[in-house]
């Protein structure tokens, strides 16, 4: 749910990083935070356990700048991937404008990716939404490891809608900004087509 304030000429967008536990969602948002020019970033908030697993969410506000007379603000969130934190995932998904699904490329995580995607669909449905109602992109993360699924296998499991996909190594920042840029474009295209 984008908040479009014509009085203040502002658009607020919410992007949620989703995916199975340990896939690299927090690493992505941390990298974005580190790379952002300090003039455009807010505080990075991470609500995590003492072992760095996301407990509720990570939050990073950033200011994209002015596009066609509107100041665009983007709020990035990550959800906790661990299965039993589903109530938290549902809450954070509320009002999302776009999703970056971070899959773990490792072979032994194949099932977890699929379960997480099913979980995403089921949580969206509690808000009356399907994956067809919201822009999303896929990150195939941890491409630096050896025992990994091929791109085709990951596409087969997760990319039923032929959305943009990115092979990434989040710990080195590879593919992180590209996927953020891609989802931002997809969301803004939807909104600008309605407000121009």
């Amino acid at each position: 749910m984008a908040l479009i304030n014509y009085a203040k000429r502002e658009i607020n967008l919410k992007i949620v990083y989703y995916g199975p536990a340990f896939s690299g969602k927090t690493t992505c948002i941390q990298y974005i935070y580190d790379r952002l020019d300090s003039r455009f970033k807010g505080k990075l908030i991470t609500l995590a356990t003492e072992y760095d697993r996301t407990l509720f969410f990570d939050f990073l506000p950033m200011e994209l700048g002015e596009i066609r007379g509107f100041k665009v603000r983007i709020h990035l969130y990550t959800v906790p991937g661990q299965v039993y934190y589903n109530a938290s995932r549902r809450i954070i998904l509320r009002g999302a404008d776009g999703i970056v699904f971070v899959a773990d490329s490792q072979k032994e995580r194949r099932r977890d990716n699929i379960i997480s995607m099913e979980n995403l669909k089921s949580n969206l449905s509690t808000y009356g939404l399907t994956l067809h109602d919201i822009p999303y992109v896929l990150m195939y993360n941890k491409r630096d490891l050896t025992n990994i699924l091929s791109r085709e296998e990951l596409d087969h499991d997760l990319n039923i809608d032929s959305v943009p996909t990115f092979e990434s190594i989040a710990i080195r920042g590879i593919g992180v900004l590209e996927s953020l840029k891609s989802i931002t474009k997809s969301i803004l295209k939807v909104y600008y087509s309605r407000s121009s």
Binding site: M1, I4, Y6, V163, P164, S193
Partner: peptide, 24 residues
């Protein structure tokens, strides 16, 4: 409508808030 290559036909959730001057 369709918006080009590699992008799907997205239907836009209606519940976005648009606030204009007077109401704000």
């Amino acid at each position: 409508g369709e918006n080009g290559n590699n992008e799907r036909n997205i239907s836009l959730p209606m519940e976005r808030i648009r606030i204009y001057g007077e109401r704000f």
